[in-house]
Computed example of a mutant assay.
Amino acid sequence: MMDANELDVLWHTSQIRVTDEIAVAPEVLFCNGSVIGTLGNFSASTGKAKSKKTFNVSAIVAAALINGEVLRYVAEFPDNKRTVLYFDTEQSPYHCQKVIRRALQLAGLPLDRHPDNLIFAQLRAQVPDIRLEIIDRAIATTPNVGLVIIDGVRDLMFDINNATESSRLINKLMEWTDKYQIHIHTVLHLNKSDDNVRGHVGTELNNKAETVLQVSKSTTDDEVTEVSASCIRSMDFAPFAFRVNDYGLPEIVENHTFGKASKQQVFSYNELSPDQHREALELAFADGAIKGCQNCEDKIKAAYASCGYPYGDGKVTKLKTFLMNKRMIVKENGAYQFNRDFYY
């Protein structure tokens, strides 16, 4: 607990006046001409397993290493922010080294000498709180850090559905980026059943990240990966596609036709506001818990329609999956219940 004097200092230093001169956050990462990363903020890549998220991140790292263009990414870090810290929480040392080699090849750098501005750490053997402490110490003590990659941000916590733990982790990302004026890019998996980011931490990430890139397999060609922005504060960019060539490197697929089928199969998290969901769910669960999957869907369909959001049977099924992924609805003791303490 802080004493009154410490709180007074924080209170006064937190105030902003219209006459203050505040510098614009330096823009350091771009995609197809749009800003996707600034110093003092964080972003994320999301995608399902085997969608080639790490290949995409390798291109971002490669662009940062040379402060140039790789794939469709452009990096423009200041001279005193050229060091890249990369933390991998999932892969073995062998596979981590493959990621390093891929990034260097994409950047056109030699493989017989490790670049001075890349520090790569493999943290799979550590527990979440130790991983967090290592990253904290590394950021604080490494000179000239501009970009930090955390490949496997969910491994910095024990329970991805724990509201307190999720909020603390996202607050830590905001603390690091603000205090050290760096950009952090994280990687998080999507649910297998839909295109929603996993757990409570995924919801927090969507709410607070500057940009969320969605990396997904093409619906028309299994060898092609598509990259688009599912959330972005800046102007949206045109999606691009890549495939892995015979050398194991991602390369742009020109004139790719982007299918819309995959986006039509899910319920978008920003289609309705939290208050709109709460209004409908209060009505659906007015009589308490609901037993039976079909009965639950029927109640949801009727309630949302009464609130002015009529959905067909197929959309209601996807809506119910979405509500459960977001833990707005939970299943306990064989019955569906409305979680009135949900955090959207």
Rank of each mutant, 00 (worst) to 15 (best):
C31A: 13
V28G: 01
V224Q: 05
V9C: 01
F240G: 00
E90D: 14
E204A: 14
A286G: 07
R113G: 00
P128R: 07
R278T: 12
R101A: 14
L272F: 07
N295G: 10
L205Q: 04
R131D: 12
G248C: 09
G152L: 11
G292S: 07
A44Q: 07
Q276S: 08
T19K: 11
V145L: 05
D298C: 02
L106K: 06
F42E: 08
D8P: 00
I134K: 04
T19S: 14
I290C: 03
L104S: 09
N171C: 05
A75Q: 02
V215L: 05
F237Q: 05
V57N: 08
R82M: 04
L85H: 01
S166I: 08
S58G: 06
Q276L: 07
A23Y: 13
K320T: 12
E226Y: 05
L109I: 09
G108H: 05
I150R: 02
N255P: 07
M1R: 11
S228Q: 10
I22D: 03
A335R: 14
A261V: 04
E251K: 06
D79G: 07
I329A: 05
N162M: 08
A63I: 03
S268N: 10
I290F: 09
D194P: 04
Q181H: 13
P93D: 10
D298N: 09
S34K: 02
K52S: 14
D20T: 07
V74L: 06
S230Q: 10
E204G: 05
D159T: 04
Q265M: 10
A49S: 15
T219Q: 08
I252L: 15
P274N: 11
Q181A: 08
D116Y: 09
R17E: 14
R102A: 06
A302S: 13
T89E: 02
F158D: 15
Y86Q: 05
T219E: 12
I150G: 04
N171L: 09
N325E: 08
W11Q: 13
T203H: 02
P250S: 07
D222L: 12
M235W: 10
A64Y: 00
L39Q: 01
T89R: 00
M174E: 11
E297V: 04
Y86F: 15
K172F: 11
Q214E: 11
K320A: 13
N196C: 11
P250C: 07
T225E: 07
D287G: 03
A335D: 14
V148G: 01
E69L: 08
F55H: 06
D313N: 10
V212D: 10
I300D: 06
F240H: 06
A138C: 10
A280Y: 01
I290A: 01
R137V: 11
A303K: 07
R17S: 15
A303S: 13
